[in-house]
Design a protein around this nucleic acid. Structure first.
Lengths: 298, 298
DNA sequence: CAAAAGCGATGCAAAAAATGCAGCGCTAAG
DNA sequence: CTTAGCGCTGCATTTTTTGCATCGCTTTTG
């Protein structure tokens, strides 16, 4: 939309930290960009950048303005989506920010299922830790977020919550593989790998371990659940993950066992949106479908 | 704001019903306006006007779009007002839609009082019947509405409500002037003037009269309370009005008496805004002051 | 039933706005 | 003390927008 061009430039300047860099990013001359901003500031009635010796930075007025424009751009997308919906076939774009766990199995299956019904709808899927996912919602760069154990819930409006018990992954020949349900203390006696502190699974594990007065001593930490899942094949270690991130039928030589609820309470996988926002039709319907699936999930 | 120019043109076309008339109103050529709209429709991805033989009319997509733009323009004004507020002195503009009763005494006094504290704030005051006032809120053309007994309350978010007993206005030498409180049946025995059906005062009077099985028989009906107040001097008739529309100390030869509560229940004078909207700083503060004054009013 | 009036659309030239280029003055980093 | 990077501005150029004249169409009018 052309009438939002100036805003796109303003965002670019904000990101780049200087007009020249932003001009470069946007394939325009610094002078043109500079004048656009000056002209805008004049008609807006106030400066929106403070000029520093090495560039520019948004001032409080600019912060307010950027927030306004983000809301307005998001709302315009919603209107467009609604209009497309009027004319019969559903079109639109759904952007999702989600935890790693959703990436391999759950979301691909759900998106494919949705697109079978509505081929006109496109998707963008971004892996975000729980903090970044909430930020994505707040800046209107994602419509939906799916995260395990979110941190702040201020702007996060929960659409559906699913309890998820932490599961243990190991090779079929692992000593613990025989038990149908595992105790945390037994797991901690064996070599284990664990996610880094930023993840909800780790937070729950640390909490549970602290109660049992036996600390987590991972032989490897990683921010990739994919890495951890593969690692157990090499050292006969154990790894942790929530069920939604696991294949229903694991690969031949891996087994999956739930951790006893006596040790670690189930965490919550939450789907949410920006608080108070009205989602575009496509996103709202997709969220509706996900909610139905998730509610039947456990 | 220049980036809303196209929207202003769209609104003009909507009002005028044809591109040529709108072009005339906006001091631009029809061809330029026509092309602006065509260009906009193209980048928006859908037509927003349906072309009729005698002009154009918004289609459903256009309705959605206009609503979006109205919200967005109102929000931009809010941001500007907030920014002005950042830089010290309060500036801004407050637009009020209100019933006639508020026009002569109450609002002038309140606005003057507010402007004594904040000379940078300007006002627009429009007389609207209770239906039109609500419409003004819904189209974001007024920030606040002050109406007696509003009709629909769907989009009207009540900020404060004040009970108002209907009062009777007559000359000092009127036979009823001696009583401190009047019964409706006595009033109806004398020549009386009444507001037309669109007014809340009339609705309450009709209701009360129906209960007493004696109908209202006004010798004159008017949509101007000013007219009615002056008329009682000429025929020694009586008129009705709510206290907020009356001078505390009436002019020499007029007296004011409350109608007995046994006959007509007090109506409600409501101050409200568009539901869910965040008002500009100036409007919000003015509303706050009004609320305080009104709560102490009766 | 034909003429007139009103409408939206479009080709083309003129006017206006935005952009690119070159260079200024300034500040902080090397 | 030099240099590199920054925002800003005058001027020529390019792009966009506007105005004018006109077409084809439909409804209204005499």
């Amino acid at each position: 939309m052309k009438h939002l061009q100036t805003f796109r430039y303003i965002e670019a300047v904000m990101r780049a930290g200087s007009i020249r860099k932003a001009a470069d990013d946007m394939n325009i001359t610094a002078s043109a960009l500079n004048r656009r901003i000056q002209r805008f500031e004049e008609e807006f009635g106030s400066e929106i950048f403070e000029r520093l010796p090495r560039g520019v930075r948004l001032n409080p007025a600019g912060e307010l303005l950027v927030q306004h424009f983000r809301v307005q751009a998001s709302d315009l997308r919603r209107v467009q989506s609604q209009v497309a919906d009027l004319s019969g076939e559903r079109r639109g774009h759904v952007s999702v920010a989600c935890s790693q766990a959703l990436i391999p199995y759950f979301l691909p299956a759900q998106i494919a299922a949705y697109r079978r019904e509505h081929p006109g709808v496109t998707f963008s899927v971004n892996v975000r830790d729980r903090e970044a996912a909430e930020h994505d919602l707040a800046t209107f760069s994602s419509d939906l977020a799916l995260v395990f154990e979110p941190v702040h819930l201020v702007d996060f409006e929960v659409l559906v919550a699913v309890p998820q018990v932490i599961h243990v992954i190991m090779q079929r020949n692992h000593p613990l593989a025989a038990q149908p349900e595992l105790r945390l203390r037994d797991c901690l006696d064996h070599p284990h790998v664990a996610p880094t502190a930023m993840f909800g699974v780790r937070a729950l594990l640390d909490l549970a371990a602290a109660k049992g007065s036996r600390p987590l001593r991972p032989i490897a930490e990683s921010d990739s659940f994919d890495f951890m899942r593969h690692y157990v094949r090499h050292e006969n270690a154990i790894a942790f993950q929530i069920p939604i991130g696991l294949q229903p039928e694991p690969d031949g030589d891996l087994v999956i066992r739930p951790l006893s609820r006596r040790d670690a309470p189930p965490g919550s996988l939450l789907m949410g949106q920006m608080r108070g926002r009205t989602l575009p039709v496509a996103s709202a319907r997709f969220a509706q479908m996900l909610a139905k699936v998730l509610e039947g999930y456990q």
